Simulated scan of single mutants.
Amino acid sequence: MALVKTLVVTGFGTNCESESAHAARLAGSDQTDIVYFSDITAGRVDLPGYNFLIFPGGFLDGDDLGAGQAGAIRWKFAATKDGTPLLELLRAFLDRGGLVLGICNGFQLLVKLGLLPALDKKYFERQVTLSNNDSGRFEDRWVKVRVNRASPCVFTKDIEHLDLPVRHGEGMIIPQDNATLSRIVTENLIALQYADPASGLPTMEYPYNPNGSPMAIAGLTDPSGRILGLMPHPEAFNDPTNHPGWTRGERPSLGIALLENAVRHLKGNA
């Protein structure tokens, strides 16, 4: 059985790294380390030593150039101390079967970096972007999301619905063209959709869809199913008492069910 070694990347405005690491440990990660981006480039951390990579939420670079844009540029052009481009390390990480989870700002980074949706397995080629919420304001509330059971995503296996908190100002998916959106739909790369809390069905209705993303997209995966990016925060629902319905006796599945699936996948793929 493989050991699950999780790397949580922080710095430059990220502020959910501790929650994300805590969620990974609760999910069964054998080793979980929070590291700064500079630790990777300086060679103090060896990316090949890990098999689960988490890009947490926060306000990366203050979103000054658009959500995740500056972070994506940093990863695209940076190299390690010995001159190895970080994109080369990331590609090798994926080739070894590693899993990647991007949450909120981390999702924005993955999209801007071109790791999602990766149609035709064209990684590091931007195909969609994320922009301002339709509401024109920061949205901070709990939402219900519906899992696409036809998706190849390993994180969402055997899950139907989740209640999760959202807290973002730029969460609306914008594909480069209608053909891109059509392929994302037909190839089942939509992993999660905002859902009506009464019917459980995908919805475009505000506030259940907090940002106006087409097809109610709340999260995307890649064709391998080993990369997941989502705007809601699964790491922030790591205990039943986190849920606003706790005192009313509501006991929905924890958000860390996504990370538990990731851990099970890695342990079963030595």
Score class of each variant (00 low, 15 high):
8 V>N: 06
12 F>D: 10
13 G>P: 01
14 T>A: 13
17 E>D: 15
17 E>A: 14
18 S>C: 00
20 S>I: 03
21 A>K: 08
24 A>F: 09
33 D>P: 00
41 T>G: 06
44 R>D: 08
47 L>M: 15
49 G>A: 15
50 Y>T: 11
50 Y>S: 03
53 L>R: 08
60 L>N: 10
61 D>K: 13
61 D>L: 00
65 L>H: 14
65 L>W: 12
65 L>A: 14
66 G>V: 08
72 A>Q: 00
80 T>S: 03
80 T>R: 06
82 D>W: 04
82 D>R: 11
83 G>H: 04
83 G>D: 03
84 T>S: 01
86 L>K: 08
86 L>H: 11
91 R>Y: 05
91 R>K: 14
97 G>S: 07
99 L>K: 07
102 G>S: 04
103 I>D: 02
104 C>R: 09
106 G>Q: 01
106 G>F: 02
107 F>I: 05
110 L>A: 10
115 L>D: 07
116 L>F: 10
118 A>I: 11
118 A>C: 07
119 L>S: 08
122 K>S: 12
123 Y>A: 01
125 E>N: 03
126 R>G: 00
128 V>W: 04
130 L>M: 12
130 L>V: 15
131 S>H: 10
131 S>V: 15
132 N>M: 01
135 S>I: 12
135 S>V: 13
136 G>F: 09
139 E>H: 06
141 R>H: 14
142 W>K: 01
147 V>F: 10
152 P>C: 09
153 C>K: 10
157 K>T: 15
158 D>Y: 06
159 I>P: 03
161 H>L: 13
165 P>S: 01
166 V>A: 06
171 G>F: 07
181 L>R: 05
185 V>R: 13
186 T>D: 12
187 E>F: 08
191 A>R: 08
191 A>P: 06
194 Y>R: 11
195 A>Y: 11
196 D>S: 07
197 P>A: 04
198 A>V: 15
198 A>T: 14
198 A>I: 13
199 S>K: 07
201 L>F: 07
201 L>Q: 15
207 P>N: 09
207 P>M: 06
208 Y>H: 15
210 P>K: 03
212 G>C: 08
219 G>R: 04
220 L>W: 10
222 D>F: 05
223 P>S: 10
224 S>A: 10
226 R>Y: 02
227 I>L: 02
231 M>H: 07
233 H>G: 02
237 F>A: 02
239 D>E: 12
241 T>R: 13
241 T>C: 05
244 P>V: 13
245 G>W: 10
249 G>M: 00
255 G>K: 07
256 I>V: 15
260 E>G: 12
268 G>E: 12
